[in-house]
Amino acid sequence: MNETIVTGALEAERISVRFGGLRALEDIALGLARGELLGLIGPNGAGKSTLINVLSGFQAPVDGTIRLDGRSITGLEPHQISRAGVARTFQAVRLFQGLSVIENVAAGLVLRRSSRHAAMKRAREILDWMGLGPKAELIAGTLPYGDERRIGIARALAAEPRYLLLDEPAAGSNEDEIGALTETIARIRTEFGCGVLVVEHNMGLIMSLCERIQVIDGGRTIAIGTPAEVQRDPAVRRAYLGEDED
């Protein structure tokens, strides 16, 4: 009962995760407010995906708490966290390969829409909104990588999440696609009003999209700030020195 009530944020505090002897995350915190675009970056192996897994219930932390709009969701199953309003995408997109694009999105609408007609209508709206309308009837397994990633985002949006966690949404996309994706993610924030966490290696996308960026390395936060602040930060420069980031 003495929980701190913070309205409208997905917060992780003092999160630690260990894989055997390896400390994947060490006493790390992250706060994502409703309507915020937060970038999460760091060198390979920094713990970015592990942190997303913790926030979405796929990885149980050995220590720490996760709160959703003030309510603790620590230890809940992935589907329970999803039901509570946190949607995510995956690096390996994991579409339903034998289903059509629109069915993929409609499958994610089961909580909100009772009938097939209503679900398909809403799925169509989301696909149109993301510019995927013409591909609605195609079978998901046959599409290029970039399209699959955007369908993954559409499917996550179908659940009408309050917080959306995107795990490397631009991987495998070309420059044009990345431009369109940047615009789409910005519009997701304004139109759906959800907080969006973006884990990405593409610095162009992160820097132009996010107002706040959290940099982690070795399972710890080394910097948080605006794109300009983060780029000037000596610790960040050290972490990335010698790494060939695009």
Partner: peptide, 17 residues
């Protein structure tokens, strides 16, 4: 559609509700 989705990837279907 839900049943087909569940048959293709049960865990993902469950995640989607």
């Amino acid at each position: 559609i839900q049943m087909r989705a569940a048959a293709l990837n049960f865990r993902m279907a469950r995640l989607l509700g």
